[in-house]
Nucleic acid binder design. Sequence first.
DNA 1: CAGTTTGTTGTGTATTGTACAACTGCCTGG
DNA 2: CCAGGCAGTTGTACAATACACAACAAACTG
Lengths: 248, 248
Amino acid sequence: MAEIQSLARGLKILELLAQAENGVSVTELAEELGVDKSSASRLIQTLATYGFAEQDPTSRRYRLGPQVVRLSRSLLTRMPLRDEAKPFLRQLVERTGECAHLAILAQGQALYVDQVESPASLRVTTGVGTLAPLHCTALGKCLLAFDNGIALPKELPSYTPRTITDPEVLRLHLEQTRRQGYAIDDEEYDFGVRCVAAPVFDYRGKVIGAIGISGPAGRMGLDRLPHYAQVVMDAARELSNRMSFRRS
Amino acid sequence: MAEIQSLARGLKILELLAQAENGVSVTELAEELGVDKSSASRLIQTLATYGFAEQDPTSRRYRLGPQVVRLSRSLLTRMPLRDEAKPFLRQLVERTGECAHLAILAQGQALYVDQVESPASLRVTTGVGTLAPLHCTALGKCLLAFDNGIALPKELPSYTPRTITDPEVLRLHLEQTRRQGYAIDDEEYDFGVRCVAAPVFDYRGKVIGAIGISGPAGRMGLDRLPHYAQVVMDAARELSNRMSFRRS
DNA sequence: CAGTTTGTTGTGTATTGTACAACTGCCTGG
DNA sequence: CCAGGCAGTTGTACAATACACAACAAACTG
C-alpha cells in the first residue's frame, strides 16, 4: 500500500489530458483507467475544482486547467540554474545568431527548461517544457555522456536516417563526446537541424544540465561546428563556474 | 461526496510545493494538511512516482517534479490563441521596443501565457505562468472591462500608491476603458512600470484574451501612451480577425 | 555516543472511494 | 415532434482502501 490509488488515478488523468488533442470525455477516461464512469466523473470533478482541469461548457469534454501553468512557473523560477543560465543563453544567441537552449535530465529524457530565440526569421524553436530523447539530441548526449550515474537508454528509436540506433556506436560516440567536451546532433532528431551543446557542472563536478544552440543545417555548416562548439563550451564553462558558488 | 479526498489532498500538496521556496518536509506537509505524517508521506510518494514531485536526496525535502512542466507545455501548445498571437507579439516588440504579453482569464486572475522579450537591456519581463490581479494590470483590466460575464473582484488590494482601490472609481475607469478600446496600467501594480493592452475577441465577440506591452515609465511617457495604444489596438484587432476564422 | 527529530514501513479499523443503478439532458433519426 | 439512445452526473450500499496509531530506521545534535 505504498501508492494512494485515487491520487494515482488523478495524476494519470492529468497525463491523459495532456496527451489528448481535443480534450477527453468522461467515458474515455473511465475506459482508459478501467474504472466506472461515475468514478472518473468524480475524480475529474475534483481536478476541476482545484483548477487542474476545465470543462468545455458545450462539448462537456475536459482539458487541462490553468493551475498546471502556475505550478510550472513556480518550478522554473525556483531553479537557480535557469536564472544563472539566462544571460549565457542570450550571449550565445548574440554570438551565433541561433536559438539557445538549456536542458536538464528528467525522467530519463532531456527536459528543455529555457530558451532564447534567434532573431533570424528561419529559426529552430523548442518550447520550454519539451521532453526530448537523450541519444539523438546534442543537449541529451551531454547529459548522457557526462553523467556517470545514468545508464544508456534500452531503446534507441530512430527519428531520421542519421539517428544512432546501434548501442555500440552510441557508446563510442559518447566517448568521443566526453573527450572533446561537447556534443553534436547532426540532423539526428529533426531533419535539417543541427545542434551543438556542452555540459554544465556544479561545484562537485556533477552534471546539472546542458546548454547549446540549434539552427538550420544551411547556416550551421559542418565546417563551422568546431567554432560554434568553442563558443558553447566557453559559455558552459563560465556558467559552471557561476554555479559552483551557489552551493545550494 | 463529490470530492475525492485523497486526490484533493495530493493537489493541495502540489500547491504547497509551488509556494515553498526551498521544498517542503513531510512533517510540514502533514501539519499543513492536518493529517498524519504517514499519510503525507504516502501521498507525496505517489506524487513522486508519477514525476510530479521530487525528493532532494540530501535534505529529504520534496519539491515539484518535472512532470508539471510537461503538462504546462501541453496546455500552452494546444492553445490556438497562443499560436496566432505569437507573430503579433513579435510585431509589437519590433514597433515599440517593449516587452509584449498575452494573457487569458483564469480563476479570476490574469494568466500570462506568452511573452516576447524586448531587446532593450532594461526590460519588464513577466514570466509565462504568472498570475496577476485584474484590477491593476492593463491586461487584467481588458479582461475585466470587456468580459460581460465577470464580476468585479471583491477585494482590491493595493500594490502601489496608484493602485485603484475604490470600486466606484474602478467602475468608471473600466467604462472609460471600454469606450476607448484599450486599457492602461500607470504604475498601479509595479513601481516604474507602465502597460498598455487591448482585448482579443473571438468570432462571437467574446473576449478570449488580451495582448499588451510593458515598459519602464521612463521610456513609456504618458504623452506617448496614445500612440502605443493605437499600435496595440491595431494588433489586437487583427489578431481578433484571425481568431474568428478558427471556429474551434 | 546518547537523545532527539524526521521519514518510512506495518497493521487494524472505519472512513471513503467504488461499482451499480437511476436520473437528467442532449442529440439523432424516423 | 417524439422516441430512442447516449453521455454525464447524482444517490446508495458495500467493501476496498486510505487513514491514524505505532514501531522502526536513519540522520542530526549536543
